[in-house]
């Protein structure tokens, strides 16, 4: 399949799935269940609206979702209280699979959600979206529900600014455009067609999720795309335009840390796939600098992209789902 073919057949707009009643009928026909997972860490300002909107629109009004769960990394604000007050199931990441310990990072929450949540499909949506709307879920669920060949659907956000020409550039954020897309173009050119590879919103079938390794930090989105592409091919991937996403803008320094984590994940996979020779072990300290007058201060960040194994290898998970080799 050429990139053009893939873009034509695997790129959607949320408006393609406006008929929610039809989508629910199709979901019920297949006997599919859908879980929504919102990973949180100190998101009290935005979590309440997300829960209200999704519960009202996609559970009470249109029963598309079977479950809404917040997986929290240990918020110190009122995130859990707010989410619970509006009817979400709230779990502390540390309480899930406690024998496997606790790591701090968004990827950890996403991984533990596979064990905790019940759905055949899990839709992940970040908690910091200011302009939340039910399309964030239905736009991602639609391709999975209607297309059995699609297993992993990623969000992208087109920003319809005014342009003098008829063509407008579509792209991701700064880390995408100056790091991830060039890397993909060099090593995994098919994946360069993902317009926003780092977006935090995606819908994935369980049988794919449980077979993915999960970096616990910044690398989780990048690794997913590489691994799904490697195991199931581009045909399993799709992307949906959700229009606009309003969220916190991150400082360039924070993006530096993100890029550092992504690079660790990327190099380890490129090395495993025989695409890159890295002979020495990689350093795990990011060095940033700040200056005051003529004093330069080095700021060190230890960033280790530890990875969780595929959930299907975890005995408790196998036992809970009645798979051979489980604990029980």
């Amino acid at each position: 399949m050429t990139t053009e073919d893939w873009l034509a057949r695997h790129t959607f707009h949320h408006g393609d799935f406006w008929d929610l009643l039809a989508m629910i009928r199709e979901k019920e026909r297949q006997n599919l269940t859908l879980s929504l997972c919102i990973p949180t860490l100190n998101e009290e300002a935005t979590i309440g609206k997300e829960i209200v909107i999704f519960k009202s629109e996609l559970m009470d009004r249109y029963p598309l979702l079977d479950e809404i769960a917040v997986i929290d990394s240990g918020s110190e604000d009122r995130t859990c209280e707010v989410a619970r007050s509006f009817g979400a199931d709230v779990y502390r990441s540390a309480d899930i699979l406690p024998a496997h310990g606790t790591r701090r990072g968004k990827g950890e929450n996403l991984w533990k959600a596979i064990h905790q949540l019940k759905g055949d499909v899990i839709v992940y949506v970040d908690a910091d979206i200011k302009n939340i709307h039910p399309r964030f879920v239905w736009g991602l669920a639609g391709p999975v529900i209607y297309r059995p060949d699609i297993h992993y659907v990623k969000a992208f956000y087109d920003r319809p600014l005014a342009f003098s020409q008829g063509v407008r550039p579509s792209g991701g954020g700064r880390v995408t455009e100056i790091l991830v897309r060039p890397l993909f173009s060099l090593f995994y050119p098919d994946l360069a067609a993902m317009i926003q590879p780092l977006s935090g919103e995606y819908a994935v079938r369980r049988h794919v999720l449980e077979r993915l390794r999960f970096p616990i930090g910044y690398g989780v989105e990048t690794s997913h795309l590489i691994d799904v592409h490697r195991q199931w091919g581009m045909a399993a991937l799709a992307q949906t335009d959700l229009d606009q996403r309003v969220h916190r803008n991150q400082a360039t320094r924070d993006l530096g840390r993100m890029a550092f984590g992504i690079l660790q994940t990327f190099f380890s996979r490129a090395r495993d796939h025989g695409l890159l020779d890295v002979h020495a072990p990689l350093h795990t300290v990011l060095r940033q600098f700040q200056v005051q007058d003529r004093d330069f201060e080095q700021v060190l960040h230890e960033i280790v992209e530890e990875e969780r194994p595929p959930m299907i290898e975890i005995p408790e998970y196998r036992a809970a789902r009645g798979l051979a080799g489980g604990d029980g």
Partner: peptide
Amino acid sequence: REIFLANLILTSE
């Protein structure tokens, strides 16, 4: 409650 609040939020935005 959530039905009403969602209508309120979506209208107000």
